[in-house]
Amino acid sequence: MASQGTKRSYEQMETDGERQNATEIRASVGKMIGGIGRFYIQMCTELKLSDYEGRLIQNSLTIERMVLSAFDERRNKYLEEHPSAGKDPKKTGGPIYRRVNGKWMRELILYDKEEIRRIWRQANNGDDATAGLTHMMIWHSNLNDATYQRTRALVRTGMDPRMCSLMQGSTLPRRSGAAGAAVKGVGTMVMELVRMIKRGINDRNFWRGENGRKTRIAYERMCNILKGKFQTAAQKAMMDQVRESRNPGNAEFEDLTFLARSALILRGSVAHKSCLPACVYGPAVASGYDFEREGYSLVGIDPFRLLQNSQVYSLIRPNENPAHKSQLVWMACHSAAFEDLRVLSFIKGTKVLPRGKLSTRGVQIASNENMETMESSTLELRSRYWAIRTRSGGNTNQQRASAGQISIQPTFSVQRNLPFDRTTIMAAFNGNTEGRTSDMRTEIIRMMESARPEDVSFQGRGVFELSDEKAASPIVPSFDMSNEGSYFFGDNAEEYDN
């Protein structure tokens, strides 16, 4: 783990906690998980779902989305002020799938948001429990990260689609708070800032007046979040320049895209947490497990152990491969979309394939898809080993990566060399080191050039047997250095459309 220093740990961010010791953190995270579980059980009762239907990941996603929508204050306010045809701002819903006479049927349900809020609060001892809501947002974000390569979004903001390893959390809503900021990748933060800068260039009043003052505060806050992700002084200094700019424009845009590229080699610290679907927490609570009393951590053995003992089902389209669908969801559960496939294969105990080789589309089923041909199958979400999630980018030494994705962002704290394609990355730096950030740029390029592919990161860190909950005997895996390590390699994943 990167030293926490003055930073709060993510469990504290996750639970809005002030400084807590490890036991208190485990208890408050457990409380959050228990609340999600209780809410899910109650919703299944309301909807009269069978046990099997309640364990269907598509039903879980609909129920999670309903509660997130019920608590989305800004959108609710907007919907009330701008009524649109056929949208009731006070209601929320989605597809629920039921097994009827041996076939899967889709039923569109509609609930009062007020009623959903009441059920959620009741499951969370009367609190709004925003930490639990954020947790579900991060699960949705991790699922998107594993399912889609955001080529269009990258290109629109002047970045290269091969930089997708920097895009963790790119679909997280803005209201996801400190826990959300911690899991956002460098590219995601750059993209958010670039969008602001572009608006400022096109709209003279963007930075002016009372609204402009708020915009400015948001801009500086985002700059500080991004600065905190960088691990070298030169990158941090460049972020200070971007933040202090009187009138952010093209120079800042250039600096930010430069920094994003540099992060492929001088990786930023991005938190990883295993956020599971509500249909995993519900049955665990129903079986009598007391998360608050037992304590829970999002970055240790607990999620692995929970998945070892969970039964989750998914709808499967006619030509999809259930094992591939399982891999997709497994990666999402562990926030591992940008991790090295060699490491993932070792931990999972079966070969993890790149996205383009998977015969599976996303987990969600569109409303126009034919239910007649839908089957369902068990998702295999178990693992051979477990490993500690990392909050750091690993040290800054790398190795060759593949054509589709030119770097990785480690999820697990496991000893290995970190793949990246130096030639491709360095070719993108057209040696432009003039301007006010020239000395920093020169320094950053120097550090990137001296990074050695064969150097090892996370020295001495290994994986653990599932029986080793105290992480007492690390097993340090050895990897084939020459092997392909990137998930979005030469990829044809669908595009994420909101």
Rank of each mutant, 00 (worst) to 15 (best):
Q149K: 12
A493N: 04
Y289N: 10
E254K: 12
F488G: 02
Y97S: 02
C164E: 01
S310R: 06
T92G: 01
S60M: 04
E465W: 06
R208P: 00
Y281S: 03
T257A: 14
E220R: 06
V456S: 15
Y148C: 13
D112E: 12
I41V: 04
R246G: 06
I25G: 04
S245Q: 12
G200I: 04
C275R: 04
M32G: 04
R221L: 03
I225C: 13
N59Y: 09
E484Y: 06
N417L: 00
K77C: 04
K273V: 02
D160G: 10
T92I: 11
N202G: 05
Q311F: 00
K113D: 06
G102V: 11
N417H: 13
E494I: 04
K31P: 00
N309Q: 13
G209V: 07
Q58I: 01
L49S: 00
S176A: 13
S287K: 13
G288M: 08
D480R: 00
R389G: 08
E484K: 12
G126Y: 00
Y111T: 08
G54D: 04
M159N: 00
I41T: 14
T396K: 05
V343G: 06
I225H: 08
G177V: 07
L108F: 13
R75C: 06
T360M: 09
G86F: 15
Q364M: 06
S269D: 08
Q311H: 04
E494N: 13
R55W: 10
V463E: 08
A131V: 13
G404R: 04
A403C: 15
R216H: 06
R389H: 02
P95Q: 09
Y40G: 00
L307A: 15
D480G: 11
W207E: 00
G356D: 03
S335L: 00
V463P: 00
E434S: 15
I57E: 09
L341N: 08
E380Q: 15
V343F: 03
D88Q: 05
L315R: 00
E18G: 09
E14G: 10
G35E: 13
R422A: 12
T151L: 05
S314D: 05
R106P: 01
D240C: 11
A260H: 01
L49C: 10
G356P: 01
I217G: 15
Q235M: 15
R216F: 06
T350L: 15
P277S: 11
S407R: 07
E495L: 10
P83W: 14
D255Y: 12
C279M: 15
R117S: 15
R261W: 11
E469F: 13
S457M: 06
S84Q: 14
P322S: 15
S60H: 04
A2R: 00
I33L: 11
E115M: 07
P453R: 08
I388E: 03
E53H: 03
L306V: 15
I408Q: 03
R55L: 13
W330N: 03
A271D: 03
T92Y: 04
S141Q: 03
E115L: 01
T411Q: 03
T23L: 12
T396F: 14
K113W: 08
N321Q: 13
D491A: 12
L226C: 10
R422I: 08
K348N: 12
P322K: 08
I33G: 04
N319E: 00
S60Y: 06
I201S: 05
R342L: 02
T350S: 12
P477L: 08
V29I: 14
F253E: 04
G169L: 03
A428W: 04
D16C: 09
M426A: 13
N224D: 13
P419S: 15
G356L: 04
L108S: 15
L328A: 06
A260V: 15
G462R: 06
Q12R: 09
L79P: 08
L381T: 15
D203A: 09
F206M: 13
L154V: 08
C279A: 14
W386D: 04
G460I: 00
A123I: 05
N247A: 11
R150I: 09
K236P: 01
E81W: 06
C223N: 11
A451N: 03
I201N: 08
N124R: 03
H272L: 07
M371D: 01
E107M: 10
C44A: 10
A337Q: 06
F429I: 07
A70M: 06
T442G: 15
Q58V: 08
D72Y: 11
A182K: 03
E495C: 04
G295I: 07
V100L: 15
R452F: 10
T62P: 00
E375S: 11
R99S: 10
A366D: 12
A218I: 14
G180Y: 05
G209L: 04
G288T: 07
Q405E: 06
R150P: 04
D421I: 15
A131D: 08
H334A: 10
A366S: 12
L259T: 06
E484T: 14
L79N: 09
A337C: 04
A22C: 00
N125I: 14
E449W: 10
E292Q: 07
K198A: 03
G300E: 11
P95N: 02
N432K: 10
A284C: 00
F420M: 06
S345Q: 02
E465H: 03
I96H: 01
D72S: 00
G158Q: 08
T23H: 08
K214G: 03
R221K: 15
M137R: 05
I316K: 01
G393P: 07
L108K: 07
A129R: 09
A336G: 15
K31T: 13
E252L: 03
D480A: 13
E81V: 03
A178S: 15
S377Y: 14
D145H: 11
Q4L: 13
C333Y: 04
T257C: 13
E320H: 02
I109N: 15
P89Q: 06
Q4C: 00
L379P: 05
F206Y: 10
I201G: 01
V29T: 02
D128E: 14
D240Y: 09
I36S: 08
G362E: 12
Q235C: 04
G212M: 07
M167R: 05
A237I: 02
A263K: 04
V299S: 10
M136H: 01
D468R: 02
P173Q: 15
A428R: 01
T360K: 11
P354Q: 15
F479R: 11
G249L: 04
G34P: 05
M238P: 01
G132Q: 07
A233K: 06
Y40K: 00
P83L: 10
F489P: 04
E369M: 11
M447G: 08
F420S: 13
A472Q: 12
G177I: 05
I41G: 10
L193A: 06
S402L: 15
L381Q: 12
S377V: 02
A85S: 13
I265F: 01
V270R: 02
C164G: 14
Q20W: 04
G435E: 09
G30L: 00
D51C: 09
V242I: 13
D145C: 11
S60W: 10
R452S: 07
G34M: 07
W330S: 05
M481R: 11
V67S: 15
I36L: 15
G435A: 12
S345T: 15
S345F: 05
D439S: 05
D255T: 03
G132R: 09
T423P: 14
K198Y: 12
K7S: 00
G180L: 02
R162Y: 02
A284Q: 14
R208G: 07
I41E: 02
N202K: 10
E81A: 00
T390Q: 09
M238V: 11
I109T: 12
H334T: 14
E114P: 14
C279W: 06
R208T: 06
G212A: 09
R317M: 05
K113S: 06
I316Q: 12
R162F: 01
Q58P: 07
V155A: 13
V186D: 11
A403D: 08
S402E: 09
S170H: 06
E443Q: 12
K229I: 11
I316A: 14
R293W: 13
N250V: 07
Y10E: 00
K351H: 13
N224Q: 15
R106T: 13
E443N: 08
E380H: 01
K198F: 08
T390A: 09
A387L: 00
T378E: 02
Y78H: 11
M426P: 01
D455E: 14
F464K: 04
T188H: 11
G394E: 12
G132L: 07
P354M: 08
D16P: 00
L61I: 15
K236N: 12
Y111A: 02
S392V: 10
R162A: 05
K31S: 07
M159A: 06
F429S: 09
Q231L: 10
S141C: 15
R384L: 14
M447K: 13
V190I: 11
D468M: 11
